[in-house]
């Protein structure tokens, strides 16, 4: 690793001030992506501002039909939280499927969203559930937040404080993990609230995206058969040694069908462990 200065921020304001003072500073919460990236010398921040200990960034809470999760909340806390399991059980299930136990013990929801890895799990939940990303400067709708590979609407000096999820009637998440890395080759997060159905696909493209054709069809009839004759547009999907664009498009459809099937049989969404 290149050298850098490590500093602990005690408050949101202090972290914001430090971030504003150093153009090449980065925020560090769990560090599960940032530290490996720095070890590979793919990033060279001048300062690491440790925000893990800031009280304002933690906590899980339900109020007025909305679930709020602090940005520095670790995956393991979301996976185990009785509040999350009751409000949006699928979100707890999703958190239990991220990386591996050691990663879940450190990694945070804010870090995952801010990094916006094209194969990360959380962005699909935020987009499907129409979450609001609250930063130290403003509120950003999930539809505006994710802007493609490792890119978000976050500006300089801006940091995620909390994420507000409207609680849906039903939701389900299914992913096809790469057998070695565990990252989603394709994952589909489907949520339904009244007539509105939102389908967010992760892993398959250069960033999380909504599959709007499927949303329209599932809005009419919430059944796996509704997407049978639809296809995800493969044009802009990822292609590498692990799979072609068409392969990923098909996987995204299969994961969506599985998620819908799971969602139709509500009980299956409340499982918090197992595959």
């Amino acid at each position: 690793m290149h050298t850098f200065s490590y500093v602990k921020a005690k408050s949101l304001k202090e972290a914001g001030d430090m971030l504003a003072a150093h153009a090449d500073a980065k925020l560090l919460a769990g560090g599960m992506t940032l530290i490996p990236t720095m070890k590979a010398r793919l990033a060279q921040p001048s300062h690491l501002i440790d925000i893990a200990g800031i009280a304002e960034l933690s906590g899980i809470d339900v109020k007025n039909g909305r679930l709020t999760i602090g940005a520095a909340t670790r995956h393991v806390e979301v996976a185990k939280s009785a509040v999350v399991k009751k409000a949006i059980p699928t979100l707890a299930y999703l958190a239990s499927q991220i990386g591996d136990p050691q990663v879940r013990n450190r990694g945070t929801i804010g870090g995952s969203l801010a990094n916006n890895d094209p194969a990360a799990d959380y962005p699909s939940a935020a987009l499907s559930l129409n979450a609001t990303i609250v930063t130290n400067k403003r509120e950003i709708a999930a539809d505006d937040f994710f802007q493609g590979i490792f890119t978000t609407a976050l500006g300089a000096g801006e940091m995620i404080v909390k994420i507000v999820f409207p609680i849906p009637a039903k939701a389900a998440y299914e992913k096809f993990p790469h057998p070695a890395s565990g990252f989603a080759m394709a994952g589909s997060f489907v949520s339904q609230d009244g007539k509105a159905v939102r389908v967010a696909i992760t892993g398959a493209g250069p960033g999380v995206f909504r599959w709007k054709d499927a949303e329209a069809a599932l809005g009419k009839k919430l059944a796996a058969a509704s997407v049978e004759n639809l296809n995800v547009d493969a044009t802009d999907l990822n292609e590498d040694m692990h799979g072609t664009k068409e392969y990923r498009a098909n996987l995204a459809k299969v994961m969506t069908k599985r998620a819908v099937a799971k969602l139709a049989g509500t009980a299956a969404t409340s499982k918090s462990s197992g595959k």
Binding site: Y6, L28, G31, M32, I35, P36, L48, Q102, N105, R106
Partner: peptide, 22 residues
Amino acid sequence: TSQCGACTVHMNGVAVKSCTVL
């Protein structure tokens, strides 16, 4: 590179990969 887990220790009671913690 935080994949193999050989460096796992407990930090405040939970398992972490010590090659990926400063």
